[in-house]
Nucleic acid binder design. Structure first.
Length: 483
RNA sequence: CGGGGAGUGGCGCAGCCUGGUUAGCGCGCCUGCCUUGGGAGCAGGAGGUCGUCGGUUCAAAUCCGAUCUCCCCGACCA
């Protein structure tokens, strides 16, 4: 039975092989496909529609926070990247270079942007002269290229889509505030719209962005127990303003370097949606970002085209009027059962079935993707009812993911315990850390786990003993094996 | 980049070890009939220079070499 089912869905069960399950889901649902070049993928319409929803919702939040969008060039002169050495060192191994224009060799190679701090810094130097020009709060939606050695659809591809915010401020305080403001914006966005609970915190120096003073991140736990970085927010200090000479005259007529931040989230979020919420039947999309929120499947019996179909169209219209993304699948060449399975795989949050029986009873049958629960639903209160269920699915997906995260977060005091849990259960492991990079490094070597974040919220007061070296430690941190 | 595995119609695979008629199977696809409340059934049909390039051979999906791509495990990253 199980074998048959697999043959039908053609999705490897999650428990059998998580990686295959992940790729199967992405390909069967037509979110993405491999391109013929190494590490590259095509985001297909269904996947891109999710991205468009993410873009729309996040863009609104970014704008509400006072930012404006702009677009900077894809190419960055090598000399620009070389200005900030730490930045260059961090990205050099994965930069793609343009060396020729047509047949002509270029005098200076151009980097295909791995990120845009350098080119944006160069431009800000021209635009900023006075404290009155500050703050500069700019965001761009773009593609970037990083020549990664190991790739995975959505999680790590050679080219990916993202937004990158780049701000410049008068004071360090202000820049710091911006960094945490964006971190919170990201957290709220991911938890609200993607229904994925995250841990917000600071990165250790080892894990921080190349060129940043401090990096903050939100981390989520995927359903296989591995962590995924969902977004980052960097306090850049004056590293870039000093090398790009971004100066302004302050209120006391002193020449000062600006304080900067940068921050981004990428199409990786789509991978996170799959891995956080998906099950053996495929995707389970949060209604907020689902391309189709409600699928209507007419039950094709007898003279259904005269009876059922018009009713289904009415339902469709009413839901559209109510601002719900609804689709009616009236194709004759597929049976209702086939459609049920298909839209379950695609993660559509709510399915409405309408058949002759329902018309008699002035109802529809509503099935939730998150629970599989079936309810008969009066047509009287269709819009309010569906809206309520969509909200409930959104909340339930978050609650389920939060339960999972909590059930898979373990506090440890000894390294033995740490190793045992990372082997047997994975998940987040919390423990004291002395702050020494050596301990962090050793733990990584021996267990493949890294410090994901030093959480913003104090979890434990006082001090403890570093789980590795047993020295006094004041940092209570999150470890995990990460993607 | 190191170690391992794989590439055969759209998808999943068999065949390869031991070279030899016309390269099979399931799903999908097309046509017709019939069906339709959880991936229907029957009949007929289309579709493959076996990842690519080269070599060995009378003969290569099969043996050898190179190369590209994917997957898994490690070192680097959103």
């Amino acid at each position: 039975m199980k074998k048959e089912e697999r043959q039908v869905t053609q999705i490897t069960p999650k428990s059998e092989d998580f990686s295959r399950w992940y790729v199967d889901v992405i390909r069967r649902t037509e979110m993405a496909d491999y391109a013929p070049m190494k590490g590259m993928m095509v985001i297909r319409p269904y996947g891109y529609a999710i991205w468009e929803n993410i873009q729309r919702l996040l863009d609104q939040r970014i704008k509400n926070a006072g930012h404006v969008n702009a677009y900077f060039p894809l190419f960055i002169p090598e000399s620009f990247l070389r200005k900030e050495m730490e930045h260059l060192k961090g990205f050099a191994p994965e930069v793609a270079w343009v060396t020729h224009g047509g047949q002509e060799e270029l005098e200076e190679r151009l980097a295909v942007r791995p990120t845009s701090e350098a080119i944006i810094g160069a431009m800000y130097a021209k635009w900023i002269q006075s404290w009155r020009d500050l703050p500069v709060l700019v965001n761009q939606w773009a593609n970037v290229v990083r020549w990664e050695k190991v790739t995975r659809p959505f999680l790590r591809t050679t080219e990916f889509l993202w937004q990158e915010g780049h701000t410049a401020h008068e004071t360090e305080e202000e820049a710091k505030e911006e960094t945490t403001r964006i971190l919170n914006l990201y957290r709220e966005f991911v938890e609200t719209e993607l229904a994925i609970p995250v841990i917000a915190g600071r990165k250790t120096p080892r894990e921080k962005f190349a060129g940043a003073l401090e990096t903050y991140a939100i981390e989520a736990l995927m359903s296989d127990g591995r962590a995924l970085q969902m977004g980052t927010s960097h306090h850049l200090g004056q590293h870039f303003s000093r090398v790009f000479n971004i100066r302004f005259e302050d209120r006391q007529q002193n020449l000062q370097y600006v304080w900067q931040t940068s921050w981004g989230v990428s199409t990786r979020l789509i991978g996170a949606l799959v891995m956080s919420h998906g099950d053996d039947s495929g995707l389970r999309l949060p209604p907020q970002v689902a391309p189709i929120q409600v699928i209507i499947v007419p039950i094709s019996l007898g003279n259904w085209k005269e009876t059922v179909l018009p009713k289904a169209r009415q339902v469709q219209n009413r839901l559209e009027q109510a601002g719900i993304r609804v689709k009616l699948d009236s194709r004759e060449e597929y049976t209702p059962g086939w459609k049920f399975a298909e839209y379950e795989m695609k993660g559509v949050p709510v399915r409405l079935e309408i058949g002759p029986r329902d018309i008699q009873l002035n109802q529809v049958v509503l099935i939730r993707r998150d629970t599989g629960k079936k309810i008969n639903f009066s047509l009287e209160s269709l819009e309010e009812g569906v809206t309520r269920v969509l909200a409930s699915v959104q909340k339930n997906l978050f609650d389920q993911a939060l339960d999972f995260q909590r059930a898979n977060t373990h506090d440890v005091t000894s390294y033995e315990e740490f190793k045992r849990i990372i082997e047997e259960r994975r998940g987040f492991i919390r423990g004291w850390w002395c702050g020494e990079e050596a301990c962090e490094e050793k733990i990584k070597e021996e267990t493949a786990a890294t410090i994901r974040v030093i959480p913003l919220e104090k979890i434990k007061e006082g001090e403890g003993r570093c789980i590795y070296c047993q020295k006094r430690a004041s940092l209570f941190v999150y470890f995990a094996r990460a993607y």
